[in-house]
Design a protein around this nucleic acid. Structure first.
Length: 407
DNA sequence: AGTCCACAGGAAGGGCAGGCGA
DNA sequence: TCGCCTGCCCTTCCTGTGGACT
């Protein structure tokens, strides 16, 4: 491509009136002025946290609802308003928001404590200190800081699955350990069942107040998209049918507003790249496939080598016409693939875990079945479109060409 | 009803890398 | 430098299990 046409592209982009007015407002992290269909929940959270304005400690709150139901958004909205109100009332209130699912940030007890410390401006080495030392430092910091602290632990279920409930026990007891500061925990979880598996003492302490965020239906999703579209797009850039389609597709997937927003954003990006000024339903179709594809490829790329080799084995069996396969078959092929790549093979026990991780990530579908006299195993299959399977094979073949030729 | 298979999956612990304080 | 702490990945050992077969 010549220099001239490149600069044409950029100048057209810079000067042109594209589809977007303010793309950021379509991001899942954006906190809009108005959150449709969550007025009741916002009011409830606000009333639960309001005691901090009188210097009292609010009850701990446990919130659950599926992905994209607006839990984090509502909590963020209430907390930001609360901080302003606290300032006006001359009350010391600090809100700490931690996403426990962020890998290598807050997904272990040590890292979560380190994150907490860093929100008070203290740096903690990413490993090395005994946990007790961290707790001691935290207590000292909390005491000297004083005031009310609201600790929002988003995706708390992910953390508890990894580290057990000892951490929560310690956190819920902080108020008995320190003087001068009051800490309130707001736990947000995607899984309602998570609370049932907790130690009863922790359960009663964590969920002094409980809230459920129901999934959005297609009409509610439509309202959300309409609301965001006002600020995100130029006038007339998005057809009403496009909004309806994004809402309908996301409603099929447990009413996930995040998915609806992603679909709309990607569809608009596609329209803009086609130098069009209008987004249509075709763009939404392409966007849906692109989102799916990107997600799967991204997940596989991020996997460690052995996990990728397990995936290579599953794909090979799938391509040989096996619609479903069992752990034993996959392990046999994995052993071959590992040997061909000069890697030491992992045990079947470990590979079994890798298979269930791939299942959790949504790349494969694996369910435990019994074949009676022929044992218990996992039945594994792939529920991805042909296009994605072939793209996935290409991606992995780039990394393990030998394995793909020889299996 | 009892046996047996092929694993699933829990528990315990080893080995390694990275960091701290003495 | 050494001992101790952490997280992480992995192995080993073990018990449990659903249902076809005897």
């Amino acid at each position: 491509m010549s220099q001239v046409s490149l600069s044409d592209i950029f100048s057209n982009y810079a000067n042109g009136t594209g589809v977007f007015k303010d793309k950021d407002t379509l991001s899942a992290d954006f906190t809009p002025e108005n959150i449709p269909h969550r007025e009741k929940q916002i009011k409830e959270i606000a009333l639960m946290l309001a005691p901090v304005l009188r210097g009292e400690k609010p009850s701990n709150i446990f919130i659950y609802g599926k992905t994209g139901t607006g839990k984090s958004l509502c909590v963020k909205k209430v907390s930001s308003t609360l901080v302003v109100a606290a300032g006006a009332a001359s009350k010391k209130v600090k809100i700490i928001y931690i996403n426990c699912k962020m890998r290598r940030v807050a997904d272990t007890e040590y890292r979560l404590l380190a994150q907490l410390m860093s929100s008070f401006g203290l740096t903690v080495p990413f490993t090395g200190l005994p946990t007790k030392t961290l707790y001691d430092q935290l207590y000292t910091t909390l005491e000297s800081n004083g005031g009310s602290i609201i600790l929002v632990l988003d995706e708390i279920d992910a953390l508890l699955e990894k580290v057990g409930d000892g951490l929560l026990y310690n956190l819920t007891r902080i108020n008995q350990e320190i003087k001068g500061a009051k800490i309130t925990i707001v736990g947000i979880s995607n899984k309602a069942s998570f609370i049932d598996n907790l130690d009863p003492r922790i359960r009663s302490s964590l969920s002094e107040e409980e809230m459920i965020f129901p999934p959005y239906n297609a009409n509610e999703l439509k309202d959300i998209l309409m609301e965001r579209s006002k600020t995100a797009f130029n006038d007339g850039a998005v057809d009403y049918a496009v909004i309806t389609k994004c809402a309908a597709l996301a409603a099929q997937e447990h009413g996930d507003a995040r998915k609806a927003l992603d679909l709309l954003r990607v569809a608009a990006e596609l329209a803009e790249r086609e130098s069009g000024h209008r987004v249509n339903e075709r763009h939404v179709d392409i966007a849906e496939e692109k989102l799916d594809k990107d997600r799967i490829i991204e997940i596989i790329r991020a996997q460690p080598k052995h996990s990728k080799l397990v995936m290579v084995s599953i794909l090979s069996l799938f391509k040989k016409g096996n619609k479903s396969m069992h752990t034993g078959e996959v392990y046999e092929l994995y052993e071959k693939a590992a040997a061909q790549n000069g890697l030491k093979t992992l045990t079947q026990r470990r590979v079994s875990d890798l298979i269930s991780e791939l299942d959790v990530l949504g790349v494969i579908h694996a369910s435990v079945i019994s074949k009676g006299r022929y044992g218990r195993t996992r039945k594994i299959n792939i529920q991805l479109s042909e296009k994605i399977v072939s793209l996935l094979s290409k991606t992995l073949a780039g990394e393990f060409p030998e394995a793909f030729i020889n299996l």
